[in-house]
Structure formats: C-alpha cells, structure tokens
C-alpha cells in the first residue's frame, strides 16, 4: 500500500459518500445515470468473487464489502425508493449499456490472465469499469446542467482513477516485477474518458461559476 493507492481508494470512497449524501439529503437522483450505477454494481460483484477464496487484508475485505453494498444500495434506491425513483431522468438515460456488458465480457474471454471463471470475471470487471462512466457522461451532456453534488461525485471518481495511475507508476518503479497490462491499460483508458469532464470542471472552478457542459 502506497500513498497514491490509499488516496485513490479514499477518493473512490468519498465519491460514493457524496452520491449517497445527494440521494439521502435531497431524496433525488436527478442527474445520476442508473445505468452507470448498475454497471458499477455488476463490476464489484464480478470482481470480488475472490472475497471468500483469497484473503489479502482486513482493509481489502472491508473495502470490497463496502463497495458491493453501497453500489447495490444506490441501485436499489434508484429503482425502488418511492421518492428517489420519481426523480430519475429516465428519458435522458438512454445509453444502451448492455452493449458495454456484452463487449466487456467478450473481451474478457479473449484477453485474460488465466482461463478460469474467477480470472475471466476479474478481467470482465476491469474492462466494464473502464467504460461504466459512459452512460453518466452522456446523461450529463444531454441535461447540460450539473448540480454541485453530482459534479463533485464525478470529480472524485475521476480523481480516484488518476491516483491509481500514480500508484501504478510508483509500483512499477519500486517493485521488481510489477507488470499488469490488463489493469493498467484499462485504467488509462478509463481515466482518459474523464479528461473532457475535468476540463469543464476546472474551467467552472476557475471562474467560480456553475458547471455547465457544452451541448
């Protein structure tokens, strides 16, 4: 564990807390893509199949349980909470996310570290996480306006990815045999998807104005 990895995990956790806070405090999920949230729930469940077979650390197990539970809770709220579900921007959230699931799984069948059920689901989760933000970015682009908490949610999610890249650079330089092509290449692709959002987030922060995305 290095400082970049810890910062990455903490900003990831913070992003989920911001999202839960938004949903809880405003009883609204407007501006949030349910499809992206469903993809994250699939990502965590598929990746943490090793929860019962490999023990790494108490921290690791705790975080895995938090990520699975929070992502399922968010999806549950958006689907079934009587007030929250009414604020869902259904007509804006039309990205065909099943394509992403299918494509990620197909890629995992081709590119994986070992041909075992766990390893294929692990690779699948890495590929799916890389593109899971797309429905969310498309929704924001369509609605144009981004409320503060939604903007901060995506900002922290992007920060988490940026810290993970620094973590890999650090590990590459300090660990003798650190090569993880699948995770690193997917991670760079995932972070690149946030570049546009970060640009507009930075502009609005600099001008102290509300975050707006161009149509």
């Amino acid at each position: 564990m290095n400082i970049f990895r810890l910062a990455g995990d903490m900003t990831h956790l913070l992003s989920i807390l911001v999202l839960l806070l938004k949903i809880y405090a405003t009883k609204s999920c407007s501006g949030i893509s349910r499809k992206t949230q469903e993809l994250y729930a699939i990502v965590f469940v598929a990746r943490y199949l090793d929860l019962f077979t490999d023990f790494i650390s108490v921290y690791n197990t705790f975080m895995k349980v938090v990520f699975i539970a929070s992502s399922l809770a968010i999806v549950w709220c958006m689907r079934f909470h009587p007030m929250v579900r009414r604020s869902y921007d259904r007509e804006l959230d039309t990205f065909r996310h099943y394509f992403l699931v299918g494509a990620s799984f197909a890629l995992a069948l081709i590119l994986h570290e070992k041909f075992t059920v766990q390893e294929i689901f692990w690779a699948f989760s890495i590929y799916l996480e890389a593109v899971a933000i797309l429905p969310q970015l498309v929704l924001l682009q369509r609605s144009g306006n981004v409320d503060n908490l939604t903007g901060q949610y995506i900002f922290f999610l992007g920060a988490y990815r940026a810290f993970y890249i620094l973590n890999w650079i650090y590990r590459y330089l300090t660990e003798p045999h650190f090569t993880r092509w699948i995770a690193c290449v997917s991670g760079v692709v995932q972070t690149a998807l946030y570049a546009d959002f970060f640009y507009y987030y930075f502009i609005s922060w600099k001008n102290n104005s509300k975050l707006k995305l161009p149509a």
């Binding site: 990895r5 995990d9 990831h12 990746r47 090793d50 490999d54 790494i56 690791n60 975080m63 895995k64 990520f67 570290e113 692990w122 993970y164 973590n167 660990e175 995770a183």
Partner: peptide, 10 residues
C-alpha cells in the same frame, strides 16, 4: 520478500 497477491488492488 513480501509475497504480493495477484489482485491486491480494489
């Protein structure tokens, strides 16, 4: 030396 688990990241 530390044994590094294969998927030790989240």
């Amino acid at each position: 030396a530390d044994v590094i688990a294969e998927h030790d990241e989240l």
